[in-house]
Structure formats: C-alpha cells, structure tokens
Computed example of a mutant assay.
Amino acid sequence: MSYSNTTEFTNPSTFILQGIPGLEMIHVWISIPFTTMYAIAVLGNFTILFIVKTEPSLHEPMYYFLCMLSVTDLVLTTSTLPKMLSIFWFNSREIKFSACLTQLFFIHWFAAIESGILAAMALDRYVAICHPLRHSTILTHPVVAKIGLAVVLRSCMESLPYPFLVRQWSYCKTNIIAQPYCTHISVVRLACGDTRVSSYYGLFGLFCVLGLDAIFIAISYMQILRAIFRLPTKEARLKTFLTCGSHISVIIIFYIPTLFSSLMYRFGQNFPLHVHVLIGSMYLLLPPMLNPIIYGLKTKQISGRLLWLITRK
C-alpha cells in the first residue's frame, strides 16, 4: 500500500501509523520515556498481582478489584505500546486492516473495563465506610466475581460495534492514521461519505460507559462524605477519608486524560496535532504506570508485604 495521500481506495489492506505527527525526527528520544513507563507498568502490575496472590490477608474485595485493575492495565498497555515502540525504533508503520480493528477493539474494551472497575471499587469503599459491619456479607466472593463478569460483558457489548462500524465504511484519499495506534475516531476520520452514525455511537458509548460510571462514583462519594462528616472527631474523619485516597487518585489519573482526549478529538481542532496524540497517549500510559505505584505507596498492607519480601531476600 502506497504511503501517498492521494491514492483512492475503498478496501485498504493496511493502514500507515504516522507516530507522533511533527515530531518524527525525535521519535527515538520520545521512545525513552515511553519505554520507561511501559516497563514500570508491567513490573508494578505484576508485583501487585504477585503480592495479592501470595498474601492471604489481602484476599478481600478491594484487592480482588485491584487485581482486575492490574490485569486490565497490562492488557491495555500491551495492546498499544509494542507497536508504538516499533514505530519509534524501526519506523515499522504498517498495520494490517484486521490488526487495526483488533487493536481499536481492545483499546476501547479495556478502557471501558477500567472505568467499570473503578466504579466497582467506589462501591467497595461505600460499603466499607457506610455499612462496615455488613461489608463481608454484602461483598462476598461470588458477588465480587459477578461484578467483575458484569463489567467485562458490559464493556465488550459496548465496544464490539466499533470494529463493525469501521469495517462498513469505504476509505478514500489516504490510509495514513495520524497517531501511533488505532482508535475508532482516528479510523473513521479516513472514511468517505456520511459517518455520523460512528460519531454518534462514539459519543453514546462515551456517555454510557465513562459518563454513567463517573455519575455512579460521584453518588458513592457523596454518600461516603456524608458518613464521614457524621463521625465524632476530626481524627476519625481524616483517617476514614484517607482510606479512599488511593482510589480517588486513580480516578483522577484515569478520567481526566480520557475525557480531555475524547473531547479534544471532537472539538479541539485548534490544538496542534502532536498535542492531540500526546494527550491521547497519556490515558493509555499514565494509569497503568501510576496505579500500582499509588496503591503500593498508600496501602499499608501492600507496601508492608513488598518491604517484607525485599528485606527477606
């Protein structure tokens, strides 16, 4: 497939991933922080999984959800970073049409799963603070498993139409995707004709997954704050609120880049293209890298177990 942007075609066999437009000359240097972030994400999330698996005292709903989050982060980064690094290092820009559809499906699927898990963790915090005596009877192991399965199935059903919508369009004038990975909106932009169905469904999916999850999280924390303010002492209120610190930090790290990136692609046409791409990459890189660090530092059970493993060895 030609790299030209004037060749007309209706059924491309490959797309060309441009990398970071305007910064191609420094791709090798850009790969250094990207590689570092990927290595930290892989090491950190595998460490979380290992600690929770080997420490019986951590076999609780909060840490089961944390393990789900770690697996999601590993899949999310691994579905994008290796191809991105091959572009930065070897200028390997071609991606088959079917591989592009697979990648965009996994990106949207596991980003939606991450949002759902954060909502499930908000439920865990709500039950732990507002109904502490009933926590173990409400969030039993079967209930946690059902919540996890529901999040996966909901996210899959929401993301499955994306590759089918992309496949139905004809493409013209260019097969160059102006970023280092495939997403629904970036591929739809290359299509001919009226693609409003794809755009509307993208906004619908954004609201029905991220929007509803964010509303659920907000309602949960409103109830949590009400319960905290009812506590008799300032020390008790602060101590209880700090148990939510890790979760709140992870929510901010995930939702702000994700929503900002989605809105920029639709409405931020005045921003330079490389700014779009770099911000879009952050929601794929920052949460997987920072989530295990945040929970490792702020959760005494995990940091204590990790310190014990290091000093023992």
Rank of each mutant, 00 (worst) to 15 (best):
K83M: 01
V127K: 09
I107N: 00
L74A: 07
Y126F: 12
R125P: 01
T72P: 02
L81T: 13
S79R: 01
K96L: 04
F88K: 02
S136G: 10
E114S: 11
M62S: 13
H141V: 04
M68S: 15
A111G: 09
S92A: 13
F65H: 13
L123Q: 07
H135D: 01
S79H: 00
S136R: 15
E114G: 15
A150W: 12
S98E: 15
L58C: 13
D124C: 14
M62F: 15
I117H: 04
T102N: 07
R134E: 11
K83C: 00
L149V: 14
A120N: 09
G116F: 04
I95K: 01
G148A: 13
R93F: 07
R93E: 09
L81S: 10
C100T: 02
L69E: 05
R125Y: 10
I138V: 14
F65S: 05
K83N: 07
V144I: 11
M62P: 00
I107V: 14
F105R: 06
I147Y: 03
T102G: 02
V151S: 09
L76S: 03
H59W: 09
I113Q: 08
P142V: 11
M68Y: 12
P82E: 07
N91M: 10
F90W: 12
V71S: 07
F106C: 03
P142S: 11
Y63V: 06
P82C: 07
L104T: 04
K96W: 12
L81M: 13
N91W: 06
F88W: 09
A145F: 12
V71G: 01
L69A: 10
L123P: 01
I138E: 04
I107C: 01
V152T: 08
D124Q: 13
M84G: 04
L139N: 08
L76T: 08
F106T: 02
S115K: 10
E60S: 12
M62G: 05
H108S: 06
L58Y: 11
E94V: 06
L76R: 05
A111K: 05
L149H: 13
L104H: 02
T80E: 08
A99D: 10
C100Q: 04
V151A: 04
S136A: 11
P142C: 04
A112Q: 03
A128V: 06
L153S: 09
M62L: 14
F106V: 02
T72L: 06
I113L: 11
L133Q: 15
H135E: 14
H131I: 09
A128S: 15
V71K: 08
V143D: 07
F110E: 00
C100P: 01
V151P: 03
F105S: 00
C67R: 14
P61R: 13
M121S: 14
P142M: 08
V144Q: 04
R134Y: 11
I113F: 05
A111H: 05
V143Q: 08
F88T: 03
S79T: 08
T102R: 00
F105V: 01
F88C: 15
C100K: 03
A112K: 10
Y126C: 08
I113D: 05
A145G: 07
